[in-house]
Design a protein around this nucleic acid. Sequence first.
DNA 1: GTCAATCCTACCAACGGGGTCGGAGAAGAT
DNA 2: ATCTTCTCCGACCCCGTTGGTAGGATTGAC
Lengths: 160, 160
Amino acid sequence: MIFTTKAEYGVRLLVELGRHGAEQPVSLKAIAAAEGLPLAYLERIVALLKKAELVESTRGAHGGYRLTRDPADVHMDEVIIALEGAVAPMTCFVDDTDSPRVLCSHEADSGQGCATKLLWMRVQGGVMEKLSQTTLAELVAFASREPITRHDRETLTSGG
Amino acid sequence: MIFTTKAEYGVRLLVELGRHGAEQPVSLKAIAAAEGLPLAYLERIVALLKKAELVESTRGAHGGYRLTRDPADVHMDEVIIALEGAVAPMTCFVDDTDSPRVLCSHEADSGQGCATKLLWMRVQGGVMEKLSQTTLAELVAFASREPITRHDRETLTSGG
DNA sequence: GTCAATCCTACCAACGGGGTCGGAGAAGAT
DNA sequence: ATCTTCTCCGACCCCGTTGGTAGGATTGAC
């Protein structure tokens, strides 16, 4: 599995916020009820989004959360990284941009390049590409549509 | 994390087989020693590759495994599916090609389309695209090269 | 027959994911 | 003031999967 429920719930939460205007905040309780998600768990997830400054909060009665930007300016790569941490294909695969090389724990043994590195880099590139091409505004629009048909399935994967 | 060590070890195993010719089989013991991987665990992994008819085995002394095809004809989408099962972004996301729709467990609640489905379909499409574009022959060639430089990293993700 | 290899099943420890609980601040409503 | 509603925060816990081991049965070359 690529993503956990953190990503799933977090994106759904953002979509729900995007559906309402940015004027008045929406409480987590309302979102949890609307989406059928556990409130206590959502609290921990929304904290990640707040730390990434994707949402802002108002405490106290009639408080809640709202988006800090226009949904069209929110790209999913930033969202997923905030929720899941860096998207890596493998445990040994940490893209440390400060280091000149992507290191692999097995690499040191054989003295030659890690056989799978090329593959994992391409896969990660493919994922990040699709994520950055998708905006929150698109998801908000999509969620309000009819349930998709078989015909839709063959077209909507084409990307941005 | 997208992939587990099943994919990692399985691909490395295939690369090791691809490095040798297809004439005489290579024993798991030799591969385990060359890659520094646990033999008993490799046994279970290679069983998946055999079931998918990506490798064939010879039992008894001087036995081992060899590829059933030319490495240039082995595409990674087939390999990864054999090793990991279907690549799905989320637990709720099972691409059942018999059913007209991709169902989501949360979908039934709200009566409207699942907000995250569009995103997961695009991501999965991106992954499968990169996997199918990469052949075993490429990985064999890549593994025999020098350790990569920073300059390489910016070019090798462009895909097959 | 013996050694080297594939096969196969059961077992196990550790980890992370998913979720709960209880409470402590903050701020509007009364 | 105080009550209610909300955000915030840390500790805790269950459980499935992953990664790996153990032990054997079977096959075939020498």
